[in-house]
Simulated scan of single mutants.
Amino acid sequence: MVKIGLFCAAGMSTSMLVTKMKNEAKAKGIDVEINAYPESELEKVIDNIDVALLGPQVKFLLTKAKAVCEPKNIPVEVINTMDYGMMNGAKVLESALNLVKK
């Protein structure tokens, strides 16, 4: 099972995207756990995720997130702005799974 964490300012704007990602994973038979968190909780949940995705509105935190994630070999990336805006769960799920494979 791949555990994906989505991080935004308060953890709420990513909740809809999480739902779409979960639906896509279920339809494709992919075993994942996906949760949304406020960016302030990254350090608290880092040991419980396999990949971290930042909402575009907090992309300025990427350097800070890398400092937390990289020592634990957790890939971290900013969600594509277009995919986020369109709430494209399929693309964001694919992106997360590709990061884990690297």
Rank of each mutant, 00 (worst) to 15 (best):
T81L: 14
A90Q: 12
L42Q: 05
K28Y: 06
L17N: 05
N98L: 11
A27F: 07
L42T: 01
M12C: 04
P38W: 08
V32D: 06
I74G: 02
K72R: 15
N73F: 11
N35Q: 15
V68S: 01
G89L: 07
K22Q: 15
I34L: 12
E24P: 06
G11L: 05
M16N: 10
P71A: 00
A52S: 13
A10P: 00
L6P: 04
E43I: 15
I46H: 02
V58D: 01
I30N: 09
Q57V: 02
V51D: 06
S15N: 02
I49T: 12
K66G: 01
T19G: 08
L6H: 04
V51I: 12
E24A: 15
K44P: 00
V18F: 05
N48C: 06
P71H: 01
K72H: 10
L62R: 02
L93E: 05
C69T: 06
K72S: 01
A96Q: 08
C69N: 01
F7C: 06
D50M: 04
I4E: 03
M21R: 04
D83M: 00
T81S: 12
A10N: 06
N73V: 02
P71T: 00
A67T: 04
K91I: 00
E41G: 00
A36W: 04
M16R: 12
V18S: 03
P38S: 07
V45H: 11
D31S: 15
G89T: 04
I30L: 13
A96M: 07
K20E: 13
V78A: 14
F7A: 03
K91S: 11
E94K: 12
Y84E: 02
G55K: 04
V78N: 05
K26M: 10
K26W: 01
C8K: 03
N80S: 09
F7V: 07
I49W: 11
G29C: 11
A25M: 09
I49L: 13
V18H: 07
N80R: 00
V68K: 00
N35K: 15
N73Y: 04
G55M: 09
L17R: 04
K91E: 10
N23H: 13
A10Q: 14
G85S: 01
E43T: 14
V92Q: 06
A52W: 08
K66Q: 14
P56R: 11
A67Q: 13
A90E: 15
Y37D: 07
I4R: 10
D50V: 06
K91D: 02
L53R: 11
G89N: 06
N48G: 15
V68L: 13
L61V: 09
L93C: 12
M87Y: 08
D83F: 12
I4L: 06
G85M: 00
V68E: 04
I34W: 09
V32E: 11
M16H: 12
P75C: 13
V92A: 13
M86N: 07
V18E: 11
I46Y: 07
V76W: 02
V32G: 10
S40R: 13
A65Y: 02
P75I: 08
E33F: 14
I34H: 08
